[in-house]
Simulated assay, not measured.
Amino acid sequence: MKPQYVIQTTADGSHTIYLPQLDEHYHSIKGAITESCHIYRDCALRHRAQQGFDRPLRLLEVGFGTGLNAAVSAEYSDIPIHYISFELYPLSPDISQRLGYDRPLIEAVNHAAWDTPVNITDTFILEKRQADFLTADLPCDIDIVYYDAFAPEKQPDLWRMETLRRTVEAMASGGVLTTYCAKGSIRRMLSALGLYVERLPGPPGGKREILRATKIAK
């Protein structure tokens, strides 16, 4: 059966996709753009970049989705970024275009070819991989992880200890992972994997807390 994609307006005026078959949204109904900018760009990318680098940052995203996280990250031009995103079921560019995100690079990231690195800007390389994150070979020396899978109740395999372990093993020392999911079980698993886990305030008008986990430098 062909998936149904229902476009809905979120609290900040931007749009998200609702999947009736999963009873799940691609972005928070409290504000799609607000969520992407706060949880991923600001609490992960900006935070990590401010620690100083003399090389491009390597960023791993779990779930390319609408391309919004990639687009707002590509706007951050303070440091070169190699952005690697896994998505098993890509949206067609026309569906993403119907969302009408007012971001300068949204069309570029959504129309970029799959399974090959693409220069979106002089400082941003996007590599979209159409593959199952659970079984794919993961890149190494990752500085930032955007863990933006659907909720644990909807995609439990992506939130199991072994999956999180593979993700952490792909991270460089000092790497950070952010996610909207602040469940106690997820906090405890990340902590058990040796990460320093912080509960941070969620995006304005949205979730009360989010997680940022740092791989302790050895």
Rank of each mutant, 00 (worst) to 15 (best):
D42E: 14
L57R: 09
K154D: 06
I216G: 07
D157H: 10
G13P: 05
E162S: 15
K30C: 11
E209W: 04
P156C: 07
L200K: 09
L211K: 03
I95L: 13
K154S: 12
Y146A: 06
P80R: 07
G13W: 06
R160Y: 07
G100L: 04
L158G: 14
A71V: 02
I95Y: 02
P93I: 06
L134N: 08
G206E: 01
F133T: 03
I29V: 13
H111W: 13
D23C: 03
N69E: 03
D148Q: 07
L200N: 04
V62L: 13
I106V: 12
L164P: 07
A172N: 12
M161T: 10
K2V: 14
H15V: 05
P104H: 15
T167R: 09
D148I: 01
P203H: 10
L91T: 03
T116P: 10
L177I: 13
L193K: 00
A131K: 09
V6T: 14
D54V: 15
T10Q: 09
E24S: 12
C37F: 11
A131P: 00
S191I: 00
L59G: 02
G67W: 00
G184F: 09
L158E: 04
L190M: 12
L138G: 03
P56L: 07
G65T: 01
D94C: 10
R160G: 13
A32V: 09
P156H: 08
L91N: 01
D42Q: 12
E153H: 13
E24T: 08
S73I: 12
L193C: 01
N119D: 13
S185L: 11
